[in-house]
């Protein structure tokens, strides 16, 4: 463990940010932006996940190996989405 501790205020700040983003997600659901709805919703979700990983999971203050593994996890998720979408978006268009 790196000795670095995060101040309590920082945690509350991140928590507040997460709540704001949550409110944003919900309110966006009531605005019809066509295909952009999903893009915005996913963007917000990713920002939230990154905040949790960096601060609540302390990755920001962790070693390089931890960074490598966290990025690998993200990269793998990307593989899953990309190749699954390669089927779903081309399925009905012959």
């Amino acid at each position: 463990m790196t000795g670095h501790t995060i101040s309590r205020n920082r945690y509350f700040l991140i928590f507040a940010a997460l709540i704001v983003l949550l409110v944003l997600t919900i309110s966006m659901a009531y605005v019809d932006l066509g295909p952009f709805n999903i893009i915005i919703a996913l963007t917000i979700a990713i920002i939230k996940a990154v905040l949790v990983i960096l601060y609540f999971m302390h990755v920001r203050y962790s070693s390089r190996v931890t960074w490598v593994f966290v990025s690998a996890g993200f990269f793998w998720l990307l593989i899953m989405f990309t190749l699954t979408m390669s089927d779903i978006v081309t399925r009905f268009s012959f």
């Binding site: 190749l83 390669s86 089927d87 779903i88 081309t90 399925r91 009905f92 012959f94």
Partner: peptide, 9 residues
């Protein structure tokens, strides 16, 4: 029932 394009890839 997977798309043929995905199948080829």
């Amino acid at each position: 029932g997977q798309s043929v394009y995905a199948g080829m890839a």
